[in-house]
């Protein structure tokens, strides 16, 4: 067993710590060491986007980053969206507009959409499509997701 490293980071506002091998991927660290299984493991090579999280406020793939690289960082995962049992406006919009079916891509879609809306609060449909093209969905045909993101953009707090 290789030497273990200590990783301290803040996830969804909570200080967390774990020990792992340097080769451990951030997504596996979140799921296996911190028990945060909301972030999904899809292709494991940066294509599908299911593992997208916010790293210091910006969307990034957690399957092509090492956990040790996130030491000292501030992360937000899909678990951090709902507040006090109330869904985030983006989550509400996904539910309302059929932005998901099986739900596998949804954590990545939500975190990618959140970054998109924070970067560009009033996206055109084309910009929404370009933004969510970072995540693959095999159920919805994307139209429901585009509708959901558009609706969230018009909701107060949709990009909070």
């Amino acid at each position: 067993m290789a030497d273990l490293v200590t990783v301290r980071l803040k996830v969804n506002g909570v200080e967390r710590e774990g020990r792992c091998e340097p080769r451990k991927l951030l997504v596996d660290f979140l799921r296996e060491d911190l028990g945060l299984t909301g972030t999904h493991v899809g292709c494991e090579h940066g294509i599908c986007g299911a593992c997208t999280i916010l790293l210091d406020g910006q969307a990034a793939r957690s399957c092509i980053m090492l956990a040790v690289q996130a030491d000292g960082a501030e992360l937000m995962t899909v678990e951090g969206l709902a507040q006090d049992g109330k869904l985030h406006p983006l989550q509400e919009a996904f539910r309302e507009h059929h932005g998901l079916q099986c739900g596998f891509c949804t954590p990545g879609m939500l975190m990618t959409s959140l970054d998109l809306l924070r970067t560009n609060p009033t996206p055109t449909d084309e910009e929404i499509r370009e933004g969510i093209s970072a995540v693959l969905c095999r159920c919805t045909g994307y139209q429901g997701i585009v509708n959901a993101v558009r609706a969230a953009a018009r909701t107060p707090g949709g990009s909070r």
Binding site: G49, A59, A60, R61, T112, L116, S133, A134
Partner: peptide, 9 residues
Amino acid sequence: VAHLPIRTR
């Protein structure tokens, strides 16, 4: 260049 989440890193 790829997508915004890739360009983050």
